[in-house]
């Protein structure tokens, strides 16, 4: 999930009696699955929470380009390079769809960008892990995009119209991402023993960080109820995590790879796999800024923003000059 630990604004779910008439009408629309559009009335807390959530989601798409971009020039074949390039370009597009959705709530692009750059806003913890070799690129597509899809598919039904439309567009493109990743890692799992070892190693390192993408366990995620009532969160963290594990285990088995969890086993009674939770202290540490790549990622985004300033300013100056010349000629 690209938006983790979004703090829901407000004081929690209000009973109908506590709601104002406007709030009641708003909740009725949501309950009836009528989309909320930018110009409609909405509670301030709904707006604030959505800016945080969509913003963090957008930042994740943008920062998520970094670990993969790291391997574009070193892809093993021209075809893999073209595929990875297309995938990374998609991520940029996904970030842009989401930024535009956030902007309809009244935050400007520069404001939201600056909140990422100075650390006031977060991006998904997963992108603070490195991609050490080509097998990691396959594993990222397979696991990270697979986990993202788990979260994004239900969000197509989210109550805020622009967010929902962005998610629909993203989901259409996301399946390519996961499949290209699985295809890349399958090539390695079916390759030489050394390649297979690399594939296993990538799975070992990325398994638990992928599970962390869904956010803390339900018993520790205190803000969910209001977000779920507003339908900006559709499933709980643990529900999605379980779904991801259930889907991924057979995929790993097909590859002949082992999930790095000795306690993982099918639970006939529950109809789900039992599995070990990730190390939550590691998760909180990464969120706090102490993951292996936090500093690098933010530095790269800041450098790109600073280095691009003259381009942004130059193009705008050129556009203004051209517009002025056109007015003068009329």
């Amino acid at each position: 999930m690209y938006a983790q630990m979004i703090k829901t604004a407000g004081t929690g779910v209000k009973s109908r009696e506590e709601m104002t008439e406007q709030e009641r009408a708003f909740q009725d629309k949501i309950d009836a699955d009528i989309k909320i559009e930018p110009k409609d009335w909405m509670p301030d807390d709904y707006r604030a929470t959505l800016i945080r959530q969509i913003g963090q989601h957008a930042h994740s798409e943008i920062v998520g380009q970094l670990p993969e971009g790291n391997w574009i020039t070193r892809a093993p074949t021209l075809e893999r390079k073209a595929i990875l390039l297309a995938k990374v370009q998609d991520e940029a597009g996904h970030g842009l769809y989401l930024y535009c959705a956030a902007e309809t709530l009244g935050v400007s692009r520069d404001e939201i960008t600056e909140m990422l750059l100075d650390g006031r806003m977060k991006y998904s913890s997963i992108f603070n892990y490195p991609t050490l070799n080509w097998a990691d690129i396959g594993a990222v597509g397979w696991l990270v995009d697979g986990a993202a899809i788990m979260n994004q598919v239900p969000l197509q039904r989210t109550s805020f119209g622009p967010y929902s439309r962005a998610m629909i567009r993203i989901c259409k493109e996301e399946s390519f991402h996961q499949r290209q990743g699985y295809d890349a890692i399958r090539k390695m799992a079916e390759g030489t023993p050394e390649q297979k070892k690399m594939a296993q190693d990538a799975l070992n390192r990325l398994w638990y960080p992928s599970l962390m993408m869904f956010g803390p366990s339900d018993k520790d995620s205190v803000h969910s109820a209001q977000s779920m009532a507003w339908k900006i969160k559709i499933n709980t963290n643990d529900e999605l995590r379980q779904k991801f594990v259930d889907q991924t285990v057979p995929q790993a088995e097909y590859l002949g790879l082992t999930i790095p969890d000795p306690d993982l086993k099918w639970n006939e009674e529950r109809g789900h796999y039992d599995f070990t939770d990730p190390d939550w202290s590691e998760f909180y540490d990464v969120v706090k800024g102490n993951g292996p790549c936090n500093v690098d990622r933010l530095a790269a985004r800041n450098k790109a923003w600073d280095d691009g300033a003259w381009v942004r300013d130059g193009l705008l100056a050129h556009a203004r000059k051209k517009a002025a010349a056109k007015v003068a000629a009329e």
């Binding site: 769809y97 535009c100 902007e103 567009r169 942004r312 193009l315 051209k322």
Partner: peptide, 11 residues
């Protein structure tokens, strides 16, 4: 289909 930022129509 959506929106984007650009300095002018051509871009």
């Amino acid at each position: 289909v959506g929106s984007l930022h650009a300095p002018d129509a051509e871009m």
